[in-house]
Simulated scan of single mutants.
Amino acid sequence: MSETQSTENPWGSARPWLTADIVVIRSGSVLLIQRADEPHKGSWALPGGYVDEGESSRAGAARELEEETGIVAMPEELVQVGAYDDPGRDPRDRVVTIAYLLEVASGVVAMAGDDAAAADWFPLDALPPLAFDHAEILADAVRRWKA
């Protein structure tokens, strides 16, 4: 880690931070978590979060999925959807995310954990408003899933 990065305050750096988000689809529904913390506290979002030092974004996505929803996936099961790097996508700082897609069996159950206040499945045609740029990420993932 360089001297300009701080593990104490990830939002105080001028460098971009790396996150991983994951779109989980089950029988035509998508898994969303309700954010327990700011920004967008109470809003629905894709599971995801900061990639740890020494961790790939794919491994970070799998870890965050398990921490926030209890769903276990092997990193190699995740299909990369794309990178999202709009400078204003996160109000805290410059954050780049790599998004992944995972399709799970119809019986898979999710339970909120870590910094998720709730976790629930939403039909793809009846989504609530989403935090950050997650509506764009979800639309891209659904196009890939349908292809």
Rank of each mutant, 00 (worst) to 15 (best):
M1K: 11
E3L: 15
T4M: 06
T4D: 09
S6I: 06
T7R: 07
E8V: 15
N9G: 04
N9C: 15
W11Y: 15
G12W: 00
R15N: 14
P16F: 14
L18H: 08
T19Y: 15
T19N: 15
A20W: 07
D21V: 08
I22E: 04
V23P: 09
V24Q: 04
R26P: 11
V30C: 12
V30G: 10
L31C: 11
L31A: 14
L31I: 05
L32D: 05
L32P: 03
L32S: 05
L32H: 07
L32K: 01
R35F: 06
A36F: 13
D37G: 03
S43I: 00
A45H: 11
L46V: 02
P47I: 10
Y50I: 09
V51E: 12
G54M: 03
G54Q: 05
G54F: 12
E55I: 01
S56R: 02
S56V: 02
S57H: 11
R58C: 05
R58A: 15
R58I: 02
R58P: 00
R58D: 01
A59C: 05
G60M: 06
G60H: 07
A62R: 04
R63G: 14
L65I: 03
E66H: 12
E68I: 00
T69D: 13
G70L: 12
I71T: 10
M74V: 08
P75K: 06
P75V: 03
E76W: 07
E76S: 09
E76K: 01
V79P: 05
Q80E: 15
V81F: 04
D86W: 04
D86V: 08
R89I: 14
D90N: 15
D90W: 01
D90T: 04
P91S: 06
D93T: 15
V96A: 12
I98W: 04
A99P: 02
A99E: 04
L102C: 03
L102Q: 07
V104D: 10
V104G: 05
A105N: 08
G107K: 01
V108P: 03
V109H: 10
M111T: 14
A112H: 08
A112V: 07
A112M: 04
D114S: 14
D114I: 01
A116Q: 13
A117H: 03
A117R: 03
A118Q: 13
A119S: 10
A119P: 00
W121K: 05
F122Y: 13
F122Q: 08
P123V: 07
P123M: 00
D125A: 07
A126S: 15
L127Y: 03
P129W: 09
P129V: 11
L130A: 11
L130E: 11
D133Q: 14
D133P: 01
H134E: 12
A135Q: 14
E136H: 07
I137H: 06
L138C: 10
A141N: 11
A141M: 08
R144N: 06
K146V: 09
A147N: 12
